[in-house]
Structure formats: structure tokens, C-alpha cells
Simulated scan of single mutants.
Amino acid sequence: MDKRNKHKVAPIGIFDSGYGGLTVFEKIREQMPAYDYIYLGDNARSPYGNRSFEVVYKFTRQAVFHLFQEGCPLVILACNTASAKALRTIQMRDLPHLNPFNRVLGVIRPTVEVLDQLSRSKHIGVLGTSGTISSESYTIEVAKMFPHIQVTEEACPMWVPLVENREYDSPGADYFIRKHLDRLFTQDADIDTLILACTHYPLLLDKIKKYIPEQVKLISQGEYVADRLKDYLLRHPEMENRLTHTGSCRFLTTESAEKFSDAASVFLDEPIHVEQITIDA
């Protein structure tokens, strides 16, 4: 059922398993400030990185349905693990029944689309959670779009905890960051473009730059996702016309609102009001 008549506001929904998607939200709002937004973090059940495909799909589907109920006709999965493990199934299996006029988009394709123009060597590195890397979603997507590009992936399971525990600037962070970067470049020394395939990782940028060759380009997803979303709405006026433009932002979490608000200060340079919710199964 179309929810437009039941809501005064038709926001863009942005979903992440936790806080990292705020790095994507920030770039989207920076480019498109007039739109209305709802950000939902499933912090009570995060992280998603080591969960099975079935569990990530179940949790992501529940979050998407909740955002639909909140009046969002368009939902962005600002989470690489959810994009890798749940997006295609939701698009193909669930949308025709949940709401055939709504749309759910991810962060992997917008990131991959820019690779050929950015990389000269055509050797790409991908850093992500265990879930994103085990899904091989980047390798598969790159092979479909740019079969001449070689992809090497490295799972970095400790990087999200470093960020969420505010240890991203600590000496301990250097150990884990250098460890995985050394392993990646040992596999392929010709990598000239590096995808930070987790929305938490932009907070580790300064550390990452210390341990990679100077000529390597770092892809932080937020700006590319924002660019492609803006382009998507230009190409799909039927969706653009459904969205409202009052500049409102709501922040929802499945855990403590106070904890989310405090943690969000790491990602957003402003105080925010947060609502704690329960996602129905």
C-alpha cells in the first residue's frame, strides 16, 4: 500500500546496522539539504559484519519495512554488509509484495561505477567487514561492469570496534590498520585505488594514509553514493515527485537514544535528537 496519503512527510530513509552510515548520510544531506530524511541505526543488533546471510537479510528486511511504514518511498542501505547480503533479495523477492512502487538502493554499485575512471593500473583493493568480503560482492560487481579490473579484498574485523569504541586515533589502531594494509599490498603491489567498503572506515583515514603508498587513491563511499543518488532522482522524476522537501531529519535507533546521540557526535558535527524504537519482526 502506498503510504503517501498517511504521512505529511515523505523522507529518504537511510539504514545502517549502527553509526557508520552517518558518514554516508552526512554527504547525502550536504549535497541535497532540502530533502527530508530518516536515519535508522539497528544498534541493538549490530554489528552485522560476522552474521550469516539469512540473519542479515532478516534484520535488513525488518528495518526497510519499518522505514516504509514511516513514509519513506526510497531507502538507502548505507551499510556494505546489508548491501552485500540482503539488497538483491529485498529488491527481487520482497519489494513486489511490500510495495512495488518503493525502491531500495545500496552502496556497492555507486562505488564500483567510478572505479574505471579513478584507477590507472586497474588493480583495486577492497577493505571491509568479514561479511562484506566473504560475500565477494565487490569482486562480482566489478567483474560485471569492468572485467579488465583486478580486485583484491581484505577483511578487517577489528576496524569497526576501533571506531565504535573511539579507539580509532589510538596507538592500538595503528597495529590493526598496518597489519591488514600490509597483507593487502603483499597480495598485489600494483593496487592504486583502495575502496573503504565499510561506512565506519572514513574515521580511520588519517591512520590508513600513513601505511599506504602516496599515489594510492582512497575511495570513501559517502560522496559517490550522494552523487549517484542525486543522479538517480534526476533520472526518476516519478520518485523525486514523491519525496518532500522541508529539510527535516529524524534519527532512530533500536538501542539507547542517549548512547546513539553521544556516539553520533563522532560522525556528525552537531547535536541531534534521537528516538529509540522497536523493529517488529
Rank of each mutant, 00 (worst) to 15 (best):
I12F: 08
I12P: 02
D42K: 11
M92A: 12
H7G: 09
D2N: 15
P33Q: 04
L95P: 02
G18E: 09
S83M: 12
H97E: 14
G18P: 07
T60Y: 07
T23A: 07
K3D: 01
D94L: 10
D36P: 03
K6H: 13
V56S: 10
F65A: 13
R4F: 02
I28T: 03
Q69C: 06
Y48I: 03
K6S: 13
R88N: 11
N50W: 04
E26P: 00
C79A: 10
L87R: 11
P96E: 08
Y57I: 01
R4I: 03
D36T: 05
F53S: 07
R88S: 09
E70I: 00
A82S: 15
G13A: 05
D16C: 11
I76P: 01
L74P: 02
Y57W: 07
S46N: 13
M92K: 15
M92V: 09
G13Y: 02
V75D: 03
G41V: 09
N5M: 13
V56T: 07
P96V: 08
R29G: 00
G21S: 12
K58S: 14
M32H: 06
E70C: 13
I38S: 01
F68C: 00
K6P: 00
R93F: 04
G21K: 12
M32V: 02
A78M: 08
L40F: 14
L87K: 10
S17D: 05
T60F: 08
S17G: 11
Y37I: 02
V75G: 04
I76N: 03
P96I: 06
R29P: 00
I14S: 06
H97T: 12
T23L: 04
N50D: 15
R88L: 10
E30H: 12
I28Q: 06
R88D: 11
R4S: 15
E70F: 03
K3M: 14
G41D: 12
F15G: 09
P47H: 12
Y19I: 06
E30D: 13
R45M: 07
G18N: 11
R61D: 02
Y37E: 05
R61P: 00
I28L: 07
A34Y: 12
L22A: 03
V64F: 05
Y35L: 15
R51I: 04
V64D: 04
R45V: 06
V56R: 11
I38R: 05
V9D: 06
I76V: 15
D42C: 11
Q31D: 12
F15N: 08
F15Q: 07
V64C: 13
G49K: 11
S83P: 06
K3W: 10
P33S: 08
K85T: 00
H66G: 02
P11L: 10
F25Q: 02
P11Q: 09
R61Q: 12
C79L: 08
V56Y: 09
D36G: 04
V56N: 09
D42G: 09
R45S: 11
Y39Q: 13
L22E: 02
T89Y: 13
I76Y: 02
S46D: 00
I14A: 10
L22S: 03
T81N: 05
